[in-house]
Design a protein around this nucleic acid. Structure first.
Lengths: 281, 281
DNA sequence: AGCAGCGATACCTGGGGGGTATCGAGTGAG
DNA sequence: CTCACTCGATACCCCCCAGGTATCGCTGCT
């Protein structure tokens, strides 16, 4: 199976429309139809159910969509990592560390300090990204290592070490009735007048629901201050809160574990050193 | 990057010889040279150092060899899993479980029994393979789930659940002086007259050393009975020992953890059920 | 019925993947 | 020193197939 075929299939499977998929791929529609047919023949499997009005994925197609994306990422990653290895050999090594914007700031700072003090530390570029993107960046080779938060971030297919575990707090507008309590349960929050915010899904759309749509933490804190929403965040976010916000411990929430994660294979010296430093913090 | 190019590169990187690699790939040598050049141009990276007498991998090439193999496996796996999904939809579902020949027999038996009793159990094919092969079989889609043993088997890039932990015992010929002891340390064994056996590496060759070469457990037990070697095995192997063998607990060996492992993604219902059953054993 | 949307088919074209022949550089034997 | 040999690169040719255009056939909506 060639990556071209796989790319084409993923495009069609995502668009569920040959014309749009062809446009996205920058080719005409007929070659795309043929390529998919050829792929189906090669695999001996029907991937798409076409009625002349609509396209739908078969079970096999759904599997190939998921697995194919992963495989394409792996191919991409192979190329990118080879290129980075060449740069490293040329004397500009450096690691790319990715983490969710606004999370684990002080842990990250400690880690970078500690690592920089190591004997053969290399430069570390820090990349901040939206929620749910870290895994992708690691898998396709744009980043070498990530800090992420279980159980929120998927660690599927990554190697990890646990760094720290912490409880969660409810962030409320200062002066809200619930701020008088010394601890809260999740039910207290959902029963209150403050709906929880809605974060975008990886495809950019928002789930349905009553809460306001938010894209980043600044926006979130702003909306809390305005009394439009409340949020559940790890304890470590507390010191960063503005004066007009209050935080109350949440007793029945799953603890959040910060882990350092990296793709399997690729146990380069600098990466191994960084992970080692992190676990010793 | 196309899988064709990657396959070609892996072949050359493994053979370190364009002619032989071309032969292995079933093409002539010149197109292979060109394909590699094109790949290098495309990546903007020198992958191979050619002197007109020998070929060597650059750092980037070494990385691409490892990552490329993984990527090719992922592509292979995507196709295979799609095909299996189609078969499953056609009514012949079935999981393929792989484990090392001769290991975890009674745990496996219990698991298969318990799973078969589940309401929507599907058929489970059991595949026995040599040491170190399970990961490959999982990664390239020939198996769905594996039982393996940490820290011996690599779980790199796999999702796992721990099932059980056990100590290890030294297996000796009955009547050997050491069998009079109630427990042993590894040093006692290495200091004895019995050398430890040598298992084949993944490529089929054997490491150097004094012990006899063994290929499977039957052979191993035979050699122990003959007084030519001793072996360190998990406790669970004890009930399967023949009368002419004796086992003594080893106090300073790492405990062996049996885990059930599966590739990330592919959380099919049957697989999820099987894993659930396993964790409840 | 007519039309519009969409995937499949028919047919053509060009680039590139693959082949053979050959070169040229390095190496080892004598 | 040179001659022969090994092995990757180059030159050149062919043809297959990816991609393009035109069109068909089916279907659901006015």
């Amino acid at each position: 199976m060639e990556t071209r075929e796989l790319r084409y299939f993923v495009a069609v499977a995502e668009e569920l429309h040959f014309g749009r998929a062809a446009e996205r791929l920058g080719i005409a529609q007929p070659p795309l139809s043929r390529a998919i047919q050829q792929l189906e023949r090669r695999l001996g499997v029907t991937l798409l159910q076409r009625s002349s009005r609509a396209v739908a994925l078969t079970d096999a197609g759904a599997v190939l969509l998921v697995e194919g994306r992963a495989a394409l990422d792996a191919v991409e990653a192979a190329g990118r990592r080879a290129r980075r290895a060449a740069l490293a050999a040329a004397g500009a090594p450096g690691l790319v560390l990715v983490t969710k914007a606004g999370a684990a700031i002080e842990l990250l700072a400690k880690l970078l300090d500690a690592y920089a003090a190591e004997p053969d530390a290399v430069s570390v570029d820090v990349l901040l990204c939206g929620p749910g993107e870290q895994g992708t960046l690691l898998r396709d080779g744009r980043a070498d290592v990530a800090l992420l938060h279980r159980p929120f971030d998927s660690v599927l297919g990554l190697d990890t070490e646990e760094l720290s575990t912490e409880g969660q707090v409810v962030v409320l507008p200062a002066g809200h009735p619930l701020t008088s309590r010394t601890q809260l349960r999740l039910a207290d929050v959902t029963a209150s007048d403050l709906p929880l915010p809605r974060w975008p899904r990886p495809d950019g759309t928002y789930p349905d629901g009553p809460g306001p749509q938010v894209r980043d933490k600044t926006q979130l804190l702003q909306l809390i201050a305005l009394g439009r929403t409340a949020a559940v965040l790890p304890e470590s976010a507390r010191p960063q809160l503005r004066d007009d916000l209050a935080a109350v411990p949440l007793v029945d929430a799953l603890p959040v574990t910060t882990v350092i994660a990296w793709p399997p294979h690729s146990r380069s010296r600098p990466l191994a050193d960084l992970v080692m430093t992190a676990t010793r913090l």
